[in-house]
Computed example of a mutant assay.
Amino acid sequence: MHDLRVTGFVPSWCSKRCRRKGAEAKRDALRGSFNISRRERLAIYERDGWTCQLCREPVDPTLHWSDNMAASLDHIECQSWTLIPDHSAANLRLAHRLCNALRGNRRDAA
């Protein structure tokens, strides 16, 4: 903690950890990152039957998140198409990480 009597100023953050968390939150907001609970994410995966909605192939739920064929959430209406992105379950679908990356922000027939 900083003391105004010692440093002569009042910092915006109480610690380096808080400053780092604030910077991460700001960066995520600028990038358009969104947070969705594990429960909501799994509900969408179950709704889509653990099938990639882009290539129609099955998705293995046991794969590590960093695997190219692991499950990820794809926005049906891409975040870059709108001023305020829609992160609701109705606008999200299951896709392989690779399929999601290859699609990018292009429109698809699905």
Score class of each variant (00 low, 15 high):
67 D>L: 04
26 K>Q: 13
102 L>R: 15
62 T>S: 12
32 G>A: 06
60 D>N: 13
76 I>W: 00
7 T>E: 08
66 S>C: 08
86 D>M: 00
46 E>S: 13
96 H>T: 04
47 R>G: 02
76 I>C: 03
27 R>T: 06
87 H>M: 08
60 D>P: 09
69 M>S: 12
99 C>I: 02
109 A>Q: 14
56 R>A: 05
86 D>P: 01
105 N>Q: 11
91 N>P: 10
10 V>Y: 00
15 S>G: 03
27 R>L: 03
70 A>W: 06
68 N>L: 08
91 N>I: 04
23 A>R: 08
9 F>E: 07
55 C>L: 04
103 R>W: 03
3 D>E: 15
87 H>V: 06
87 H>S: 08
85 P>E: 00
105 N>G: 08
17 R>G: 11
36 I>V: 04
34 F>A: 01
13 W>L: 09
62 T>V: 09
32 G>S: 07
71 A>G: 02
29 A>V: 03
78 C>Q: 04
23 A>K: 10
27 R>I: 03
72 S>Q: 07
2 H>L: 08
55 C>N: 06
89 A>L: 04
63 L>G: 01
31 R>M: 12
44 I>H: 11
81 W>A: 10
74 D>T: 14
49 G>R: 02
76 I>K: 04
50 W>N: 11
42 L>C: 01
106 R>G: 06
66 S>L: 08
98 L>G: 10
17 R>P: 05
16 K>L: 13
72 S>D: 09
32 G>K: 06
108 D>Q: 15
3 D>I: 10
49 G>W: 01
105 N>W: 02
80 S>L: 04
96 H>I: 02
19 R>P: 03
1 M>D: 13
6 V>R: 09
59 V>L: 01
105 N>R: 09
68 N>K: 13
64 H>I: 15
19 R>W: 01
73 L>C: 00
89 A>H: 08
4 L>W: 00
105 N>I: 05
72 S>M: 05
92 L>D: 05
53 Q>M: 03
81 W>H: 12
72 S>E: 15
51 T>Q: 14
100 N>I: 01
61 P>C: 06
25 A>Q: 06
17 R>S: 11
82 T>K: 15
104 G>H: 06
97 R>M: 07
33 S>C: 04
61 P>Y: 05
99 C>D: 03
63 L>I: 00
79 Q>I: 08
44 I>L: 14
70 A>I: 12
107 R>V: 09
31 R>C: 15
23 A>V: 07
72 S>F: 01
55 C>T: 05
14 C>H: 11
101 A>W: 06
59 V>T: 03
2 H>K: 14
26 K>F: 05
97 R>P: 11
39 R>G: 13
98 L>D: 12
6 V>E: 11
32 G>W: 01
93 R>H: 02
91 N>V: 05
94 L>R: 15
25 A>P: 01
30 L>A: 08
101 A>Y: 10
95 A>P: 00
52 C>S: 00
23 A>W: 14
8 G>Y: 08
81 W>G: 07
